[in-house]
């Protein structure tokens, strides 16, 4: 399988002495949908900045589809599409002009640029807004515009830095569908996100970066298989009271309020058996939900293992 991007011992120290990347290495295969996760300030955006040449690295190598970004500048740039975290287009330009101009920077003729611009603005639901100034767009529309702009030269590798931050749930889901579609058509995607549900749903492989170091680099399946327990919130039809105990050792429960129960069960226990036992106790469950996302549990445990407190992770 071809490697879409290989990073070896990548280091970045800013002028103020802050060491943002401490020699990270990772590989992403062609066709992958890859999640790069980490708390704020972990080094995700710096990594993307170095790959896209917007940040000068201190050391290490970045190889895109077998070509070093330092020695094959033009070809590697043609292979890359970048959707940054912050809006970085002119607020005074029209939507269509922003995408057309980017196509021109990549050397596309006006005819091809116009066709591709229409194609991606339509796909991202922005065609009706094509003649509006970009500053008039909503936050979600601006993010979609940046995706259309990054795709206009049809890169083989698309890197998105928190593309759904601040986007409402309906729009977020339509963006997931779109990204899944272009990934199925062969575009390799690297995604950074704070929505771990998003990473779990979309991505096949994952790396977790913290304090400038990769602390986990594996497949999503393998990582999720490491969960040794899950916590659910159960809503009861009847009022709950007293202490609830279970016959099995690795099941524990805690009453949250008069109609809600928090239950933690080991990975080896079937959830059916939990319902049976609750039923025997006269507790009928009307609904159930995960207390936290499964990936979130693992993410937090990795960061805690790396010396972070939960508060620091969330902050």
């Amino acid at each position: 399988m071809t490697t879409a991007i290989a990073i070896h011992n990548l280091r970045k120290t800013y002028a103020n002495g802050f060491e943002a990347l401490k020699g990270i290495s990772m590989e992403v295969n062609e066709g992958d949908f890859f999640a790069l996760l980490g708390p704020n300030g972990a080094g995700k955006s710096t990594t993307i900045g170095v790959i896209s040449t917007l940040i000068n690295k201190t050391g290490g190598d970045v190889v895109v589809f077998g070509r070093d970004v330092d020695t094959h500048v033009y070809q590697t740039k043609l292979d890359l599409g970048i959707v940054p975290q912050e809006v970085n287009f002119s607020q005074f330009e029209k939507v269509r002009d922003i995408v057309m101009t980017q196509a021109g920077y990549y050397g596309l003729t006006r005819k091809i640029a116009a066709e591709r611009t229409e194609k991606y603005l339509r796909k991202l639901g922005l065609w009706d807004k094509r003649n509006e100034r970009s500053r008039a767009l909503s936050g979600g529309m601006k993010r979609r515009l940046m995706i259309a702009r990054a795709l206009v030269h049809e890169p083989r590798l698309l890197i998105l830095d928190e593309p759904t931050a601040g986007v409402d749930i309906e729009l977020r889901r339509s963006m997931w569908e779109f990204l899944t579609e272009i990934n199925a058509q062969g575009t390799t995607i690297i995604l950074t996100t704070h929505y771990l549900e998003e990473a779990e749903q979309l991505c096949r492989n994952i790396a977790i970066i913290d304090k400038g170091e990769i602390i986990e680099h594996t497949s999503m399946k393998k990582l999720l298989a490491e969960l040794d327990s899950q916590t659910f919130i159960l809503d009861s039809e009847a009022e709950l009271s007293g202490e609830i105990s279970f016959s099995r050792e690795n099941v524990s429960a805690r009453i949250i309020d008069s109609h809600s129960l928090e239950v933690t069960i080991g990975a080896d226990i079937a959830i059916n058996s939990l319902f049976s036992e609750l039923s025997e106790k006269g507790i009928n469950v009307s609904s159930l939900r995960n207390k936290t996302n499964r990936l979130e549990q693992l993410f937090l445990s990795r960061l805690n293992r790396n010396g972070r407190s939960d508060a620091a992770v969330q902050g």
């Binding site: 040449t53 917007l54 033009y74 070809q75 912050e86 002119s90 920077y105």
Partner: peptide
């Protein structure tokens, strides 16, 4: 272009 960061459009392009 620098202030609005739209210069990045040029810098990432070949």
């Amino acid at each position: 272009h620098k202030f609005q960061r739209s210069v990045e459009e040029l810098l990432v392009a070949p």
